[in-house]
Simulated assay, not measured.
Amino acid sequence: MTDPRHARKRALLRVFSLILLLGIAASLIDLSEVWVRLRAIPIWIFAVMVAIQAGIVLILSWRFANLARSVGADLRLSEATRLTFLTTLGNLLLPTGLAGDAGRVLLVRKYGLSLSTAMAVGVFDRIIGLAALGAIVLVGAIAAASILPIYVALAAFVVPTTITVAILIWWQRSAKNKAALGPAFLSVAGLSAALSIFAHLASILIAYLFFLEQGAPVGFFGVLVLFPAVLLAATLPISVGGWGTREFAAAAAFATIGVEAPTAIAMAVIFGLSQAVAAAIGSAATTLFSQTDAAR
């Protein structure tokens, strides 16, 4: 088990990193310009972004539930959705490594999985998402070759895809999982890849809607190529919920095609805010539904 003292140190380090990133941003960028761009977003567009974020969580819940059930978990889609909303909210707001994917893996154990199997599902869930993200980058790079060299995009696709295949082979050779990992599981893996692509495209759509509203010089394929770097930066465990790292990545990535830093940072902030609002609403709704269902 994790030493509580080490967990506290990591949490404090993440908080310190967030404060440091905010300080650096304040010293390099006029944050009032970011605020101006955020205020310019109509409330109805923000509501659309929140709805899309909720849809992304539903897609990821479906992916996780299918993977978990394929290896024997007695997990309903409604419960997987509740877990995903709660851990998404925790990951965005809490400086702890037990939120997000790690927290969901620990919580899903109560549905009949061993720790090793739950961890394998969690790793596969994440890696197949990265492979799908790499595929999107590759398509975007082919369509907009001037933004990103094809060999970089190809590496972004090949590396996680190779790891995904390696995990499948390792799992197939494990005597414990041979019964679970057959054609049925491989079909689930295919479905998971398709769901991952839809989820990433929905995330990219949010960023594109923001740039479109702002009149920024960004085409859809440009967002397709560059926004995955923002998504990856948000997963780095060096801040709280990706705040700060997501914004710096957005400024650096979109500067390559002439987008001003305040506009790119405002896009990343609005993405995080819409995700947090969707996660909060979804957590409250699914928890209420779960309690009502249990009382029947």
Rank of each mutant, 00 (worst) to 15 (best):
T81N: 14
W62Q: 06
A73C: 10
Y111A: 11
A80V: 08
L92R: 01
T88D: 03
A118L: 12
Y111G: 04
D74M: 15
R109Q: 13
R63C: 11
L115S: 12
R82T: 09
A80C: 11
L75R: 02
V108L: 12
R63W: 13
S116R: 14
G103E: 02
R126A: 11
G90Y: 03
R82N: 03
M119W: 13
A80T: 08
K110C: 08
V71T: 10
L93T: 14
T81V: 13
L98P: 10
T87K: 00
A65S: 15
T84G: 04
L115C: 06
D74G: 09
F124R: 12
L89C: 04
T87F: 01
T88C: 10
L94P: 07
V123M: 11
L75F: 14
L83G: 06
L106K: 01
G112M: 11
G100C: 05
R82W: 04
K110G: 14
G100I: 00
F124C: 09
G72P: 05
L107D: 01
A118V: 02
R126P: 02
L75M: 12
R76Y: 08
R76W: 08
M119K: 03
R76N: 06
R109W: 05
L113F: 05
R126G: 01
T84K: 00
V121M: 13
F124K: 04
S70L: 06
G112D: 09
A65K: 04
R82Y: 02
L98E: 10
A80D: 13
K110V: 08
P95Y: 06
T96Q: 00
L89T: 04
D74I: 12
A73D: 10
L98Q: 12
R82V: 04
F85E: 04
T96H: 11
L93Y: 14
G97M: 11
S116Q: 13
L94A: 15
A68K: 07
N66H: 09
N66A: 09
L93F: 12
T117W: 02
E79D: 15
G103R: 02
A65C: 11
N66R: 10
L89M: 14
L89R: 00
L107R: 02
W62A: 08
V71K: 00
N91W: 07
L92P: 01
K110F: 12
R69E: 06
A102D: 05
L92Q: 02
R82M: 13
L115R: 11
L89G: 01
T84Q: 11
A73K: 09
L106C: 10
M119L: 15
R82D: 00
F64R: 00
T88F: 13
F85W: 03
L107E: 06
D74K: 15
P95V: 06
